[in-house]
Design a protein around this nucleic acid. Structure first.
Lengths: 133, 133
DNA sequence: CCTACTGTACTAGATCAAATAGAACAATAG
DNA sequence: CTATTGTTCTATTTGATCTAGTACAGTAGG
């Protein structure tokens, strides 16, 4: 587990950890059944309080990314969101509205933005359970 | 100016205000030269402290979206980022990596994501100064 | 069974960001 | 000159974040 914390970042540490794990899953570096480092171990690695790691793992479990089992450890589930379809679509729509607005103000054209999304998509490992429409 | 604050949102008020103004500019509802409500006026509208509005306007000016002129008011510039090209590209790349990771964990396919981006892009009014490549 | 590992829960405290309140100053428009 | 604009400042409250330390609970393996 190569987690890098940026102490200067405005994002809280527990979110940085959670996001990096989500990134590893999206890339396929971590997948169904893989074991995460223990709370204490990761805390030591990253030089952070165990409570902070716990908080990251809580977030990830609430989002369905991992499963926590007392005594044995935390594991990647390989599943996604758990929200109902309407809510998922709403979230995606919000996310894209934010993304497009920010990209626009960075001064990019719609072509630039589409291309950049494609680059991002190429880094992701899409083979998951089918979802019903 | 129809600004809506969600007190439940994890995002700070000053960011919500700034983002909604950026959204209005991206949609074309606000454009070059348009005057924003005064600090005190908007603060009253949204039932928020004037200092909070000031902070939103500071953010927007730092990003080049608006221009503040003491005595006269705040105005849309119609310009974008002001960062150099390398930094802009870096920001776009980061933004997209975040977006794709989140969308992935919401359980969407790369096709879903591309489509949703296109929907978002359709809501944006792209006619701006040319940028050198 | 025992031990060492795992996650969990709790309290307490330090630090910082966000927001409010209120006062005062500075530049502009009319 | 006056009203309106943005600006600056200090003080205070609230909540989130993070640290620290302790203790408890479930699991795996000898």
């Amino acid at each position: 587990m190569l987690i890098r914390i940026d102490p200067q970042s405005p994002d809280p540490i527990f979110e940085q950890i959670a996001f990096q794990i989500k990134g590893a899953v999206a890339r396929g570096d971590l997948s169904d059944g893989d074991k995460l480092p223990s709370v204490r171990e990761l805390a030591k690695d990253v030089s952070v309080n165990p409570n902070t790691v716990i908080r990251s793992y809580e977030v990830l479990e609430r989002e369905g990314v991992i499963l926590r089992r007392q005594g044995s450890g935390c594991f990647i589930t390989g599943k996604t969101s758990m929200l109902n379809d309407d809510e998922r679509k709403r979230q995606l729509s919000l996310l894209m509205r934010r993304t497009v607005t920010e990209a626009y103000h960075l001064g990019f054209s719609s072509e630039d933005i589409r291309k950049s999304l494609d680059v991002g998509l190429r880094g992701v490992h899409f083979r998951k359970e089918k979802r019903k429409k």
